Computed example of a mutant assay.
Amino acid sequence: MEAIRQNGKIILHGNDGISIKMIFKNLTGRNFQGQEYVEYIRHIAIGDMGFSPGIIEYCRDGEAVGKGTIPNV
């Protein structure tokens, strides 16, 4: 299982091996930049997914394998 955690709490999880990693990259600005990224964070990540600004972790089988930050935009 893959998951994205924030403050020790799993916010998103899945088992397909693709979507959670892609969403983590979206959240950390690797797939979006500029105003598109700001809008994604404001409306999707914070507004719809339940994230807040701060550190997030990408986890695989319960172990953190990546870290990133959701900015306060």
Rank of each mutant, 00 (worst) to 15 (best):
M1H: 03
I4K: 00
R5E: 15
Q6A: 09
Q6G: 02
N7D: 04
G8V: 03
G8H: 04
G8W: 06
K9S: 14
K9I: 10
I10D: 07
I10L: 15
I11M: 05
I11L: 09
L12G: 05
H13G: 02
G14S: 04
G14I: 12
G14K: 12
G14R: 07
N15F: 03
N15E: 10
D16R: 14
D16P: 02
D16F: 15
I18T: 01
I20Q: 00
M22R: 03
M22Q: 08
I23H: 00
I23C: 00
I23A: 00
F24P: 02
N26K: 14
L27E: 00
L27N: 00
T28L: 12
R30K: 07
R30H: 12
N31E: 02
N31D: 10
N31W: 08
F32Q: 09
Q33L: 06
G34T: 00
Q35A: 12
Y37S: 03
Y40E: 07
Y40V: 11
R42K: 09
R42S: 12
A45V: 03
A45S: 15
I46R: 06
D48S: 08
D48Q: 07
D48N: 11
D48P: 06
M49C: 06
F51P: 09
P53G: 04
G54V: 15
G54A: 07
I55K: 15
Y58D: 12
R60A: 05
D61G: 08
G62D: 06
G62Q: 13
A64Q: 11
V65G: 04
G66H: 09
G66D: 07
G66M: 08
G68I: 14
T69V: 14
T69A: 13
I70W: 10
P71E: 13
